Amino acid sequence: MSISSMSALHDESIASWKTNAAYWDNGIGQDGNKYWKRLQKPALERMIPFQQGADMRVLELATGNGLVARWFAAKGASVLATDISTEMLDISARRELPEHKGKISYLQLDVTDPEELDVLAAENAGGFDVVMMNMAIMDISTIEPLAAALPKLLKKNGIFVGTLLHPVFFNSGTRRSIQIVDGGPDGYPEIIRARTIEKYLDIPPYHGVALYGQPAQQVYYHRPLHELFSTFFKTGLVMDAMEEPAFTAEDAVPESIGATPNFTQLPPILAFRMRRVF
């Protein structure tokens, strides 16, 4: 894809979040949806080493409505919450609770712009303990500038934690299939759920929705695992944790046979942790 085409898609991505900001906020809410409560938050709690009384400095990228920033602040961290969308930042500030005052600050930031990242690193020369990007890597047109900036943004032994839609099971063209087999083990019909994956290595940017009914489609950027991880490895970061959180039977949605939480063997998201060791 040409540079001009990628630039146009990047501009479209920014415009879509401006349009979708209020709808997204309504869908996620103050305390998060099922994906946050059952998949993302448990994984982050295992990956991020909170210590009682420790002064943790956090840089959050693509904060959205501030859900993760508020979660960090509630644990005592000092958070710089950033987003390319001023609409999202305004919503985040309005969502802030009284007990979070002084713990969260806000900054408009384009994580695809090397110059903006360099300025941010220079203004925070001491570095951050944690750089966090929750469920946004697949929304970013290029991750190379971020990967290059992380060694400058992180303290030594600091961590970058990312979560995203699982590149294997959630990409353009993946099809869900459901078979109902009569005479299952308990005498009732057995429901077999699967996903058919035709393409994985080479999938161009595509349009989709995160929340059904949102006003504008957004652009998704697919990266196979080797491409995703090697981008960070090339800058000297080391991956020391990875999880593939999945829903369980208690998350099932009986009234919607094709709902993602019913596919308990196919993880919807991928979570990973990279560390600056030098």
Rank of each mutant, 00 (worst) to 15 (best):
E123V: 05
L89E: 06
D118F: 06
H166Y: 05
I104W: 02
A122Q: 09
P145L: 02
S105N: 11
N124A: 00
H100T: 06
L146M: 11
A147N: 08
N157Q: 09
E116C: 10
L117R: 03
K156M: 05
P145D: 03
E116R: 14
I143P: 06
M138W: 10
D129Y: 04
Q108R: 15
G162H: 07
F160E: 06
L109H: 04
E99K: 12
N134C: 13
G162F: 08
T112Y: 03
P98A: 13
D129I: 02
F160C: 03
L164G: 06
H166G: 10
E116L: 05
M133H: 03
V111K: 08
G162P: 05
I143W: 07
K155G: 03
G162K: 14
F160I: 01
A147V: 05
D110R: 12
I104C: 03
G102P: 02
E99L: 03
P151E: 07
N157P: 05
L146T: 12
A147M: 01
K155W: 00
N124W: 02
I137H: 11
T142W: 02
K101M: 15
L154F: 15
I140A: 02
G102V: 07
D110E: 01
K152G: 11
E115S: 03
V131P: 00
M135P: 00
L120F: 07
I140L: 03
L165V: 15
A125Q: 10
A148R: 14
E96M: 08
V111L: 12
L120D: 03
S105E: 13
V131G: 00
P114G: 15
A93Q: 14
I140P: 01
R94L: 09
N134G: 15
V119G: 04
L154D: 14
K103H: 06
R95L: 09
V130D: 01
P145T: 02
F128W: 08
A147P: 04
N157Y: 04
A148M: 09
M138S: 13
P145Y: 01
V111P: 02
G102N: 03
K155M: 00
I140Q: 08
A121M: 07
M133F: 04
V130A: 08
A147S: 07
L120K: 08
G162A: 08
I104K: 09
G162Q: 06
K156T: 07
I104D: 00
L153V: 13
S105C: 07
E99G: 08
M88H: 14
K101R: 14
S92W: 02
L109T: 05
L107R: 15
M132N: 14
A125N: 07
P145R: 02
A122E: 15
G127M: 00
V131R: 06
S92L: 04
S141C: 06
G102L: 03
L165G: 11
R95I: 11
F160A: 01
A147E: 00
P151C: 04
M88R: 10
A125V: 09
L97K: 12
V119P: 05
I137N: 09
D90C: 10
L146C: 01
A125S: 15
A125I: 09
I159M: 04
E144S: 14
G126D: 15
E123R: 15
L146G: 08
L109E: 01
T142L: 11
D113W: 01
G126K: 11
T163D: 01
D110Q: 06
A147Q: 02
T112G: 06
E96W: 00
V161L: 10
A149Q: 04
M132I: 11
E144I: 14
